[in-house]
Design a protein around this nucleic acid. Structure first.
Length: 618
RNA sequence: GGCCCCAUAGCUCAACCGGAUAGAGCACUCGCCUUCUAAGCGAGCGGUUGCAGGUUCGAGUCCUGCUGGGGUCGCCA
């Protein structure tokens, strides 16, 4: 099981399968069978889709295409539904559908089909998940740490969502590179270099500079940057101009500036790697904006040769608006003018330096050269949507990449209880490590209260606390649709009750405990048979994994998988409460044990796709 | 001011191509540990989907207008 060849469903082209092929999820199999009936009746099979029902009291699956088709065929929905129902042949998949309301078809699958499907999930290395039909090469750009800023809560979403998207794409068979894309090349670098210059009174004293660079820490960079950024923001022209010149010097190749930059880069990189590791986030490429820098001169020449650049107020710009695309814009003096929209991409600043759009464009060139991707996903704050639109259009105009293969996976902000972007009580930015620390402390408290099976070693205790903390933080984030902002409330996420990360870990750990005991008692899993209502619910939950995975993949939205993980955990919990495993005997015990093992495998896998690790005990 | 996003139960969030009685969790009320981890399970309570129109067999979902909130509008990223 598990090889690519073996994963192909032999019935995928079969018009009316005579036997249910468990490689397909039940909704897909029912849809195929229903489509065959539609075709036989001369109805458009695209309306034959069957999905999980909103009305479990009437059936487990539903098809409502009869209503849509009836309109096109000029028939009554009820009549269409009746002819479809009459056209259904009894198979081992489902019984003839029942008709309800204006023409809804309701299906109930057979216990045999459910058992076969659950058995497939149990035996399958991918726990019932399908692979993509055509593999693509995909770069996922996420995380976006900044050299001059430590990781704080603002980086959480980019890291958490991007990591999950990367895992989802890879799991379905694409070739995927995650790239951290460090913010290590823009104006900010000139700014911190200028700040350092002020601090040590110039760069003339070589020994002094060396000593300072040697002692440099990320904490210091973090302290310097906001101070100077604030000065510029508040109108300090002198600092701004010096920082711009320093930026241009760095990018122009000044050895001194590069040396200072490197010291800052290295100290920051080391600290960021620790933070990412603690979050369970890993990259295949630890590249940054600076790595695209060598490509910029040739790229600018190329853009120029293609006649795409224009001089404008001392800068060089690339227009990306199509004819007629304009917007009204309010100027500082209050007058309203009509300008092109989107704004042009600023390629070379009046100071001669590269802007972040320039770097992003050059990074596309770089990726097309090195990874040759079919798709590049940018997991970045929604507020940068306009910026990416500019860059993508510029890339398309220059012929570097098609517009379709560049996609911004935007997400909303993480807000505090007051609904504004998250701050600490003191009004500052909460560091990532402090946040994780707070979550871990809550986990420790709960672990101490629990007293179950508590002969944890110090190491295991800390490991569990960490895993619970990360699970709480990540699941809270990923259970919201990424596009909207959400309110960060650590107490709620760590409440250990309800729809939380810890709940999911708890369910997984309970299954592990049973499997350990089964092992000790020499009980082996056996053929799955679905009899009890709770077994049925669990099998249906296991079947739903692939649909959730495909939705998460297509929409680049991990919350579909978060939802699935919760549904599965709940279905297992109901099964656990109603269907004794080790207390039962014979074939029933073997079947239930196999179901439990399948649930654990799929739950662990789903959580892994969300970037969440499961401890052995808790 | 232009453009984009959002508004769903007291709170935090779901709802796939427009489908049936809009779902979860928290909070609140009640029941369940002699039984594989009670961080659990079951039941109840809770809704004019911001407002007003429109499209249609059918609208939380699509269209128009309005109200409220957020974001954004070239030399930061």
């Amino acid at each position: 099981m598990g090889s690519r060849r073996a994963r192909r469903c032999l019935h995928s082209d079969c018009p009316l399968p005579t036997a249910y092929c468990p490689m397909k999820d039940l909704a897909t199999a029912l849809s195929a069978a229903n489509a065959a009936v539609f075709t036989e009746l001369g109805l458009d099979p695209k309306h034959a889709d069957v999905r999980r029902s909103d009305r479990p009291d009437l059936g487990e699956f539903q098809a409502n295409g009869a209503l849509a088709v009836a309109k096109a065929a000029g028939k009554k929905p009820q009549e269409v539904a009746q002819s479809v129902a009459a056209g259904w042949k009894a198979t081992d998949l489902a019984q003839t559908p029942t008709i309800a309301g204006p023409g809804f078809l309701n299906f109930t699958v057979t216990p045999e089909a459910l058992g076969k499907r659950a058995q497939f999930v149990a035996d399958d290395a991918h726990a019932g998940a399908s692979a993509v039909e055509t593999k693509r090469r995909v770069v996922v750009d996420y995380g976006g740490p900044n050299v001059a800023k430590g990781m704080h809560v603002g980086h959480l979403r980019a890291s958490i969502i991007g990591e999950s998207v990367k895992r989802i794409y890879r799991f379905r068979g694409d070739e995927v590179w995650g790239d951290a894309h460090f913010g290590d090349w823009g104006f900010q670098m000139g700014l911190v270099i200028t700040a350092l210059e002020d601090e040590i009174g110039g760069f003339d004293d070589r020994a002094k500079l060396d000593a300072r660079l040697k002692a440099l820490t990320l904490d210091q960079l973090e302290a310097i940057y906001p101070t100077y950024a604030k000065r510029v923001k508040e109108g300090d022209i002198d600092v701004r101009d010096r920082a711009r010149k320093a930026t241009a010097a760095l990018q122009g190749g000044s050895a001194l500036h590069r040396e200072i930059w490197k010291a800052m880069h290295d100290v920051s990189m080391a600290a960021q790697k620790r933070d990412f590791a603690s979050l369970g986030v890993d990259f295949d490429l630890w590249l940054g904006e600076s790595d695209a820098d060598p490509l910029i001169p040739d790229m600018v020449k190329d853009l120029d040769a293609k006649g795409l650049l224009e001089d404008d107020q001392g800068a060089r710009i690339l227009r990306v608006a199509k004819p007629g695309e304009t917007k009204k814009k309010k100027r500082d003096d209050g007058t309203i003018v009509e300008v092109e929209s989107p704004d042009p991409l600023l390629v070379v600043s009046s100071e001669g330096s590269a802007m972040y759009g320039t770097t992003d464009l050059a990074t596309i060139v770089q990726r097309m050269r090195d990874q040759k991707p079919d798709l590049i996903l940018y997991c970045v704050d929604q507020r940068q949507a306009d910026h990416f639109e500019q860059v993508y259009r510029a890339a398309a105009k220059a012929g570097y990449a098609s517009r379709e293969m560049l996609e911004h996976i935007g997400f909303g902000t993480m807000n505090g209880p007051d609904g504004t972007p998250f701050k600490t009580r003191a009004g500052g930015v909460l560091k990532l490590q402090d946040l994780i620390g707070q979550a871990e402390e809550k986990a420790r408290e709960r672990l101490r209260e629990n007293e179950v099976d508590t002969n944890f070693s110090k190491e295991e205790f800390e490991d569990i606390a960490h895993k619970v903390a990360i699970a709480a933080i990540k699941f809270a984030d990923l259970s919201n649709f990424r596009g909207t902002s959400y309110i960060f409330d650590l107490d709620r996420f760590m409440s250990f009750e309800g729809k939380t990360g810890p709940y999911l870990l708890y369910q997984a750990v309970r299954i592990k405990s049973i499997l350990r005991k089964a092992e000790e008692q020499g009980v082996k899993p056996g053929a799955i048979a679905i009899e009890h209502e709770a077994e049925r619910s669990l099998a249906l939950a296991l079947d739903a994994f692939d649909g959730a995975l495909r939705a998460a993949y297509d929409k680049k939205a991990p919350h579909f998988l978060a939802e699935h993980a919760y549904n599965l955990a709940q279905a297992f919990s109901g099964f656990f409460a109603n269907c004794p495993i080790l207390q039962s005997n014979g074939a029933i015990r073997a079947s239930r044990l196999a179901l439990a093992a399948a649930a654990l495998k799929q739950l662990t896998l789903t959580l892994d796709l969300l970037g969440i690790d499961v401890p052995e005990r808790m």
